[in-house]
């Protein structure tokens, strides 16, 4: 727990000193405006809430991919990975703390889109099922964090990971159905998409702002958590092997 908190505090302090990680908090309101403009111009008031929720999910994805995914690589380049490994605290625990801080910051985008929607278009998110909504957001943040650990473990072994992750954002928004439900994607992609926790998150989140009851809420929530936990375990496994390999080859530090 101490390692988790240390990581959490570290990341908050780093972000405070260098707010690059907050980039999606600048773009989230802009994306909200773009999406709202599209549905408003088409006269589809029923989709306005969806237009506001999409940027929140995009923000979480972005943070996982562009920031959390590079935490290990960044430490390695700064010659921090070796001293971290040499402490009695496990790297995965510290990482989880750091990523949790990032996810917490990412969730601030929810407040932003609420404000922008109200100020510019006079639109809000109808809180039809507030408890379910909060749970869905939390489960989504958890699952995103789990996925981010897997990203971080893979990226540290990948050359040019930065170029690569820049290109992954929109493909993942698409597969995750953050705005347009996966049902609108071509049939052959849909099986892939249903393995992506974000598609479950997006569908469930959209259901929580509709007046109708939410079908199978708990099992759908469990699916998000399960997919997130699977990513987390997979991430830990990859991390374990990657670190063992680097320790054997002497690659924990860059020259």
């Amino acid at each position: 727990m101490r390692g988790f908190l240390a990581g959490f505090g570290l990341e908050l302090r780093i972000v405070r000193a260098a707010p690059d990680a907050l980039m999606p908090l600048l773009t989230a309101p802009l994306f909200a405006l773009v999406f709202l403009a599209i549905v408003r111009q088409s006269g589809r008031a029923d989709l306005e809430a969806d237009a506001l929720l999409a940027p929140v999910l995009m923000t979480l994805w972005w943070v996982a991919l562009q920031h959390a995914g590079h935490l290990i690589t960044g430490d390695r380049w700064q010659a921090l990975l070796e001293p971290v490994i040499a402490t009695p605290t496990s790297l995965a625990t510290i990482l989880l703390g750091r990523i949790a801080a990032l996810m917490g910051l990412g969730l601030l985008s929810f407040g932003e889109v609420l404000i922008v929607g109200k100020l510019v278009f006079g639109v809000g998110v109808p809180f039809e099922h507030p408890v379910e909504m909060a749970l869905t957001l939390l489960a989504t943040a958890f699952a995103t964090a789990g996925t981010a650990i897997a990203f971080a473990a893979v990226f540290v072994m990948t050359r040019n990971a930065y170029t690569f992750t820049n290109s992954l954002s929109f493909p993942l928004y698409l597969l995750g159905g953050v705005f347009v439900p996966v049902a609108f994607l071509p049939g052959w992609i849909q099986p892939v998409s249903s393995g992506v926790f974000m598609s479950w998150s997006a569908d469930l989140l959209r259901a929580t702002v509709k007046r109708d009851g939410i079908g199978d809420f708990w099992s759908r929530l469990a699916m998000i958590v399960a997919l997130g936990a699977a990513s987390f375990l997979l991430g830990r496994l990859i991390l374990f092997h990657v670190l063992a390999r680097m320790r054997a080859k002497g690659e924990l530090a860059t020259v």
């Binding site: 302090r13 780093i14 001293p83 605290t89």
Partner: peptide, 23 residues
């Protein structure tokens, strides 16, 4: 060498972080 510290953090914050990692 000069690397191996979090440059964006203060000296005190760096030490507090490592202290926590040493439990």
């Amino acid at each position: 060498g000069e690397r191996g510290l979090y440059w964006r953090l203060t000296g005190r914050q760096n030490l507090e972080y490592w202290g926590a990692l040493y439990r």
